[in-house]
Computed example of a mutant assay.
Amino acid sequence: MTAKSREQSKAVVILGEDDNDRKSISILLAALRRDISRADHAPLRKPMALVRNVPPSRLPKHADRVAVLLRAVAVRKPIRCVLMHEDADDVEPAHEKLIAKIEDCYRSLPWPVHAVVPAWEIEAWWFLFPQAVQQTRSTWRSLGQYAGRDVGQIRNAKQELQRALRPSGAKPTFQSYTEADSVLIAEKIVATGALSRPPAAKSRSWQTFVDTVAAL
């Protein structure tokens, strides 16, 4: 086995706020890094690794609890790196401060830790791919009005996305965006080849994610 194949056989552990986020990140990771097998993705439902609201004095114990579970993963399969997702819940450049806090918190772990921090939420990233989003559900309205905008400045991105996709005069049976649709949107972004084209809008937190994945 070559050094490259040994590296590829290691697990990329994905921690996130919920299953939809973890699955979406895994889908995007697989498309951006086709050299990393989906079999090597290891999304974990626990531990909750969120640190944004954790006081500095509690961060070491927080990191210790996460380390225990990661070591259990490493017993089954060597870990290549850990992706830790947490929403910034604020506009850019708030993601930069949270990325630093996450990576500092887990710096003592024996594996590289890379923070995945969308601003405001992962829904802000979907504004970058309006065609893929509209194709996810035929009843959704176009996001074309966001073209060229800095979507990292959208507050309450999830609610904004729900409003933007709802056509005027929508019937009560209209299927609005839900968090579970993130997985479908991520799949559609990949299927339509949107990742190979420049995004329709701007987001520094998205570009940070792309750069992070490229460097794994």
Score class of each variant (00 low, 15 high):
A3M: 10
A3K: 12
A3L: 15
S5K: 13
E17A: 03
E17Q: 08
E17D: 10
K23I: 09
S24E: 07
L29N: 03
A31Y: 08
L32P: 02
L32F: 00
R38Y: 02
A39I: 10
A39R: 09
D40T: 15
H41L: 06
L44W: 04
R45E: 11
K46H: 12
K46T: 14
P47C: 09
M48Y: 12
L50P: 01
L50K: 15
V51Q: 02
R52H: 11
N53S: 13
V54L: 15
P56D: 14
S57K: 12
P60L: 11
K61T: 13
H62W: 06
D64A: 15
D64T: 14
R65V: 06
L70C: 04
L70F: 07
A74G: 06
R76W: 03
R76T: 11
P78W: 08
P78S: 12
I79R: 00
L83C: 01
M84R: 07
H85I: 02
D89M: 02
V91N: 11
V91K: 13
V91H: 10
E92Y: 02
P93G: 04
E96S: 04
E96A: 06
L98I: 04
K101W: 05
E103A: 02
D104L: 05
C105W: 00
P110V: 04
P110H: 03
V117F: 03
A119D: 02
A119G: 01
A124M: 05
A124R: 05
W126E: 10
F127C: 07
L128P: 05
P130G: 12
P130R: 09
P130S: 10
A132Y: 07
V133D: 04
V133K: 09
Q135M: 13
S138I: 06
R141D: 08
S142Q: 09
S142Y: 05
A147R: 14
D150L: 11
G152R: 13
G152K: 09
N156H: 11
A157K: 08
K158G: 10
E160T: 14
E160I: 06
A164G: 10
P167S: 07
S168K: 15
S168M: 13
G169C: 04
K171T: 13
P172Q: 12
T173H: 08
T173D: 10
E179R: 15
A180M: 05
D181Q: 11
S182V: 09
I189Q: 04
A191L: 03
G193Q: 04
L195S: 06
P198D: 08
P199M: 08
P199E: 09
A200V: 11
A201T: 00
S203N: 10
R204H: 07
S205G: 01
S205D: 00
S205I: 01
Q207M: 09
T208W: 01
V213R: 00
